[in-house]
Design a protein around this nucleic acid. Sequence first.
DNA 1: TGCATAGGTCTCAAAAAGAGACCAGCACTA
DNA 2: TAGTGCTGGTCTCTTTTTGAGACCTATGCA
Lengths: 134, 134
Amino acid sequence: MDGKIVNLKSKLEIYKAMTAGANFADCPVRDVMRGINGKWSPLLVMALAEKPYRFGELRRLVPDISQRMLTQTLLELQRDGYVHREVFPTKPPSVEYSLTDLGRSMFHPLYQLVQWAELNHEAVRDARAAFDAA
Amino acid sequence: MDGKIVNLKSKLEIYKAMTAGANFADCPVRDVMRGINGKWSPLLVMALAEKPYRFGELRRLVPDISQRMLTQTLLELQRDGYVHREVFPTKPPSVEYSLTDLGRSMFHPLYQLVQWAELNHEAVRDARAAFDAA
DNA sequence: TGCATAGGTCTCAAAAAGAGACCAGCACTA
DNA sequence: TAGTGCTGGTCTCTTTTTGAGACCTATGCA
């Protein structure tokens, strides 16, 4: 329990892990969360959970992502082991992105969070309106 | 189904919602996810799930957050309705932050994701090592 | 008087993200 | 045969976000 969020068996454990001090910023859980937490990562994982997509398809699917961020986010997802990248020798070569087993396993809890967001987005909107009015 | 990720009953629904085009960037689910997804938000929600904390306590609890980002993130969490802020008329005044019902309800799926991260951080680390070696 | 504590704000530098031009290689068309 | 488009990117520049740290007000205490 060296300054990292680990062994989260209970809320008390969270507290212990978080207060342990030292090299807190190197917490592996925060490290993993950072990879999942990006602006575009959850969106791309959700898309790829449906079926594999090619680069251009993803770009059209998410019209407001820049090509630069799409490249970069896919590379990060690939590096973290969530996404598999496969090049097909067509002319011109096409590249397909798909979820790995690890990616699919991560999709489940992520999906829970997205579902929560879907169910509660009105409550959040109302909270914002009330806050802004005050 | 106007260009937003809504009614996510199935993966097919995700696909439909994502491909619906138009004002895709205004998707309410993405909007809510953005608030949850920040660099510090999950960490603070996890901390406050344990018990209410005061400003200075949170700052000491998360030593690598800047005071500026702590203020800002707490304000956002408050605006979105996850966190309640209460000022006590001590001298000098102290401020306590606690999770609202909405915040506690959001904590559950978030916690699932954090648990996943805890269980799989080695797999992610291995994936990164393999990727960087290649 | 002088320093500490509480919960911030303000300013400036660094890092990240967004916009959009550019590129290579091939196929198809005019 | 020159032009056009498609593929999946990279490069550069601008804007936004974040981080580091000084500063602030009011009070209590030595």
